[in-house]
Nucleic acid binder design. Structure first.
Lengths: 230, 230
DNA sequence: GCAACCGTTCGGCGCCGGCCGAAGCGTGCA
DNA sequence: TGCACGCTTCGGCCGGCGCCGAACGGTTGC
C-alpha cells in the first residue's frame, strides 16, 4: 500500500530535478556520454554531475561502463528509455509555442529526421509508420500493431532476422508519440532493428554528434522502392 | 532545450512525493474523493493535503469539483491516469515479493477483479483480453490493436455505440500492463466502454467502496456466451 | 617520472518543500 | 440563529537536496 506509493515517488524523484531530467533527455539519443559531457550539457560542476549520476544509476535508470579514466553512462535499457518517452509525451500538449531563432537551424534538421533512443523519429519516422500503415503492414486504427503482412514483410522485404526478432522479450512493435509530429512512430524491437538496418545500409546517416540524421541519396532510392516514400 | 528538461522535472516532481503518489494511486480507482478522505488515506493533516492537492491540480494531473462544503477531486483525464499507470508499470519488476497477512483477503479480491481507472483489470481483465485475442478480435502478437473483426464485434456482439466510439480522441484500444498479472489488459476507449457496459448490465459489480469488483451469476453466464470465459 | 586530465569525495552553504497546529471562512443542518 | 463540519490560510519548524570549490586518486600520455 504505502510502500507502493514510496516506490512510485522514488522513481519519479529521479526525474524530478531539472539537471537530472536534462541528462536523461540527452541520453535519449541512445548513445553513451561521459560524465563530463553530461555535466557540461546540463551546466553544472562535474562534482554535481557525479552525484546525480549516482542517483540515476542507483535508481536503475542508467548503466555505466568504465573505460580508463572515462566513465561512460547510457540509459540502462529500452524500458528506461520508454519511461522517459512516456513522461515526455504527457507534457507536449502544453509546450506548443515556437522556439528561438538560433535553434531554428538545428531544430529544422531534428524535426526532419532524428533518432529516438534506438529507432527513427521526426518526419521521417512518422513517414515510415504512415507508409507501413498505407501498405497494410501496420494497423493504427484501434491500437498499434503489426499485421500478418507486416510480420512477413519485416523478414522478407526489410531483410531482418526472424530469429533475432523472436528472441527479445521487448514488445515487437509499439507506438511512440513523436513530440514534433504529435503522432506515433514505430518503436519496439521492430523499430530498433529497422533503424539499425537503415543505418547499416547507409540509407540514413547521423549529422554530426547529435540525434539528428539525414536520408542519403541511396536511402531516398531505397525507401521509395521499399515503402513508396517520397 | 533546458526548458524541456524543466517541464519534465516539473511533471515528475508532482509524483516525486510519497504523499502525492499515494493520493494519485488511490485516485486510480477512477472515482472522486474528498480532500479529507485523501488526507486520511495518505496519513497527513488536512492542511497538508490541501497543499498537495493544489500542486496536483495546478500541474494538471487532478481536477476538482466543489459541492457545498465538500471538495471532490479526481484524475483530470484519461491521459493523467495513463501517466500514473505508465510509471507504475516501470516499478513492478522490483516489487515482486509477497504481501502481509492482513492484506491477503482484500488483495485476493483485488487480484481476481478490479477496476483500473475506467477499465477492468486483474485476472478478469486479463481473461477478457485473452479471450478476445483467442477469438481473433485483438492482436497482441506484435503490438496491441483491435482487428477488423474486433472492431465489428464491439458494436454488434458487445452492443457498444459506434458513434460514441468514434467520437473520442483517445486511442480506441491500448494495452495497460496489469500489475498483478504482469500482462496487458484492454484499456483505451474500448476498454472503458466495455467495463461501463458490464457494470450497467450488472455482470460486474463493485465490492464495497474500493476498486475491487466481482462477477455476478448473470455476468458469469453473459461472459461465457459473449467470450467463452470460464 | 611528471604533467594533464577525468572523475570522485568531502565539507559547507542556502533554499525549497513537507509537515503541523491554530485560526479563519464558508456551507449545511437543527 | 446558532453550531458543527469541511476545507483553507498562515506562520514556523525542520530536514533534505542541489550546488559549489578544494583536495584527492587513478589513468593517460609526454
Amino acid at each position: 500500500m504505502s510502500t507502493d506509493a514510496a516506490d512510485l515517488a522514488r522513481l519519479a524523484s529521479l526525474l524530478a530535478d531539472e539537471t537530472r531530467a536534462a541528462m536523461c533527455l540527452a541520453l535519449l539519443d541512445g548513445r553513451a556520454w561521459t560524465a563530463g559531457e553530461l555535466a557540461a550539457h546540463a551546466g553544472v560542476a562535474r562534482s554535481t554531475a557525479t552525484e546525480h549520476l549516482h542517483r540515476l544509476i542507483g535508481g536503475g535508470l542508467l548503466a555505466e561502463e568504465r573505460q580508463g579514466r572515462h566513465r561512460y553512462v547510457r540509459l540502462a535499457d529500452p524500458a528506461a528509455a520508454q519511461l522517459i518517452e512516456d513522461l515526455s509525451a504527457h507534457l507536449t500538449p502544453a509546450v506548443a509555442p515556437a522556439r528561438g531563432l538560433r535553434q531554428a537551424a538545428s531544430s529544422a534538421a531534428m524535426k526532419r529526421a532524428r533518432t529516438c533512443y534506438d529507432h527513427l523519429a521526426g518526419e521521417l519516422g512518422v513517414a515510415v509508420a504512415d507508409a507501413m500503415t498505407a501498405k497494410g503492414l501496420l494497423d493504427q486504427r484501434a491500437g498499434f500493431a503489426l499485421t500478418d503482412d507486416g510480420l512477413a514483410w519485416l523478414t522478407t522485404d526489410a531483410g531482418l532476422d526472424p530469429a533475432d526478432l523472436r528472441r527479445s522479450r521487448r514488445p515487437l512493435a509499439r507506438g511512440c508519440l513523436d513530440w514534433t509530429e504529435r503522432r506515433p512512430h514505430l518503436a519496439g524491437v521492430a523499430g530498433a532493428r529497422l533503424c539499425e538496418r537503415f543505418m547499416a545500409q547507409r540509407w540514413v546517416v547521423r549529422i554530426g554528434t547529435g540525434r539528428a540524421v539525414k536520408v542519403t541519396p541511396a536511402g531516398r532510392e531505397g525507401l521509395r522502392a521499399l515503402l513508396g516514400i517520397d
